[in-house]
């Protein structure tokens, strides 16, 4: 990628983004991933106070992906400030601080307690499917509650705020529009699908301690492509498209349906952190072959 991409007013040097929840606990880990070619790094969702998360096993692999229920473990705001400062000081990647709260006010307080010099963009994680026992339905499952969180978060920072949406609500475009109307600067889609379940065939027990977990990986690519297609039609704010991307062709499809940037999470399981470099190079080659500019490709499906 020789040119920068402007997303929500922030310049990205490369067009891949590390998804929240993957290799995002420590600064060192995020810096290393940026070296694999990610232009934006999203940390694991930060909650105001320390959260232990669910007991292991929290992740299980199946033939076409992964289910996980890490349960939003977080070191809390103070420690996260230190880890993100390390990334900000030692990497050219855009730092996206994912935040999580059990209530609207907790979202606001968490953002306020974050040092605004350690991140470029706030991402509201209102779509984790793995903490329903604790918090009930995710905010992303209703236009009203999604827009409430967004509106309250807006007052906490002047930096751009993007909202991460769930594919588990039937009309994702409606939620995206509600977020845009409440002041969102962008949308990240999609979070994990489901939740899903896997069973051990000898013990007949669920393979996760939490019994159920969000589904990610290649299995969910078509759902993610469709969701981003719907969101692009519903809003004018830019989209980070993710969900099941493991190959160049997946990322190209995501951009073609309207993603300004593509994201990778579980894809690292299949191709390591260099997946970003591989996909970026592949996109460049594709654009040259097709004689297209990057901006022409974004949302091209809708112009046919």
């Amino acid at each position: 990628m020789t040119h920068t991409i402007k997303f929500a007013g922030v310049n990205f040097n490369r067009n891949g983004v590390l998804a929240s929840g993957i290799l995002g606990v420590t600064g060192s880990s995020m810096i290393k991933t940026a070296q694999g070619g990610a232009g934006g790094i999203t940390c694991k969702s930060i909650s105001k106070n320390f959260r232990k998360g669910h007991p292991t096993p929290v992740l299980q692999v199946f033939k076409h992906g992964v289910i996980n229920a890490v349960g939003l473990s977080s070191t809390g705001v103070d420690n996260s400030n230190n880890e993100l400062r390390n990334v900000k000081n030692n990497s050219d990647a855009v730092v996206i601080a994912s935040v999580f709260g059990g209530t609207e006010i907790e979202f606001k307080e968490t953002i306020e307690e974050l040092d605004s010099s350690v991140y470029d963009i706030i991402e509201l994680n209102i779509s984790c499917p793995n903490v329903a026992d604790e918090f009930g339905h995710a905010f992303a499952n209703s236009p009203h509650s999604a827009s409430n969180v967004m509106r309250i978060a807006r007052s906490a920072t002047n930096k751009p705020i993007i909202v991460k949406l769930s594919p588990n609500y039937p009309n994702i475009g409606l939620i995206a529009k509600a977020c845009e109307d409440a002041g969102a600067d962008g949308i990240t889609a999609i979070n994990t699908v489901g939740p899903g379940m896997l069973i051990d065939i000898n013990t007949f027990q669920p393979k996760l301690t939490n019994k159920v977990g969000g589904v990610s990986g290649p299995a969910i690519l078509p759902i993610a492509i469709r969701a981003v297609y719907d969101i692009y039609k519903a809003v004018t704010i830019p989209i980070i498209g993710m969900g099941g991307i493991t190959e160049v062709e997946d990322a190209i499809q995501m951009i073609a349906v309207g993603a300004q940037l593509y994201g990778v999470g579980t894809g690292i399981l299949y191709h390591g952190i260099d997946i970003f470099n591989t996909i970026n190079t592949g996109i460049d080659e594709y654009l040259r072959e097709k004689n297209l500019q990057y901006d022409d490709l974004v949302g091209i499906v809708h112009k046919q």
Binding site: V25, T26, S29, T33, Q35, K44, V58, L269
Partner: peptide, 16 residues
Amino acid sequence: KCGIGICGSCVLDDIG
């Protein structure tokens, strides 16, 4: 947590 290289729990400072 995962043992398979994606959760980030076992990453060494600062070598990543």
